[in-house]
Amino acid sequence: MTDAIELLSTRRSISAAFLAEPAPDDAQLKTLLTIASRVPDHGKLAPWRFILYRGEAREIVGQKLVDIARQRDPNISEARLQEDRNRFSRAPLVIGVVSRAAEHVKIPVWEQQLSAGAAAMNLVTAAHAMGFAAQWLTEWVVYDDKASAMLGAGEGERFAGFVHIGTSTVPPQDRPRPDLAEIVSDWQES
């Protein structure tokens, strides 16, 4: 088995709540983002971009999310507000993967969206290869226009998700994976 196969077979998501310092340094971050950008991209459109949330910005984002959550639901519980306050502070680094998919003469929007998803997955895999742990999350902020705009999504853009990166404070746990017999078939003429 090659090192790459071993790497891919040992990758596990670690809950953002269990990610701590250290996070990737600037040189490592540049490498991570370069690898994240090396995905299938028909037409060389780069139909994605990245937004970094680190340091004090994570706490500022959290307070802004609390404000948005209160506007959405004036009766929201304090526990839920605390969850939103800490949403971007769970890990020392959060990278927003923004899909910039748009109508194109040759490249379907769906293909561009898949490219953004591939960029997010490359980011998660590269973090694992560097010895960090990561979790790719969406949560309500991806689906809320006001929250997405505050987080940096522009007109016509949407988040493919947020990749939380840090050092795991717990051992990785495996979870049941699909039985290949249930998800793989040979094509048959009908």
Rank of each mutant, 00 (worst) to 15 (best):
K64H: 14
L29M: 04
R38P: 07
L45N: 07
A57Q: 14
T31E: 15
T34Q: 10
R72Y: 06
G43Y: 04
D41T: 10
D41N: 05
L29I: 05
P74R: 04
L52T: 15
L45K: 12
Q63T: 12
V39T: 13
D73S: 08
R49P: 01
I51D: 00
G62R: 00
S37W: 03
E56A: 13
A69L: 01
Q28H: 06
A46F: 05
K30M: 07
G55F: 13
L32G: 13
T34N: 12
H42P: 13
A46P: 00
R38C: 14
S37G: 15
D73M: 11
L65Q: 04
G43C: 09
E56F: 11
I60E: 13
Q63E: 15
G62T: 08
L32K: 01
R38T: 07
V61F: 06
A69T: 00
E59L: 03
L65E: 09
L32H: 02
K44W: 03
I68P: 04
A36M: 11
T31K: 14
K44I: 08
P47N: 03
W48K: 11
L45D: 00
W48E: 12
R38N: 10
R72H: 14
H42E: 10
R54G: 13
R58S: 08
L65A: 14
D73E: 05
F50S: 00
Q28E: 14
V61D: 07
L52N: 10
I35R: 06
W48N: 03
R72W: 05
R38D: 11
R49I: 09
I51T: 02
D67K: 01
L52V: 15
R49H: 05
D67Q: 13
Q63S: 04
P74Q: 01
P47W: 05
I51N: 02
V39R: 15
A36Y: 11
L33M: 02
R49Q: 04
Q71G: 13
R72S: 15
T34L: 08
V66N: 06
L45P: 00
Q71W: 07
E59V: 13
I35D: 07
I60T: 15
R54I: 09
L32T: 06
L32D: 02
V61C: 03
Q71H: 07
I35N: 11
L29E: 05
R38G: 15
R72M: 11
Q63M: 06
T31Y: 14
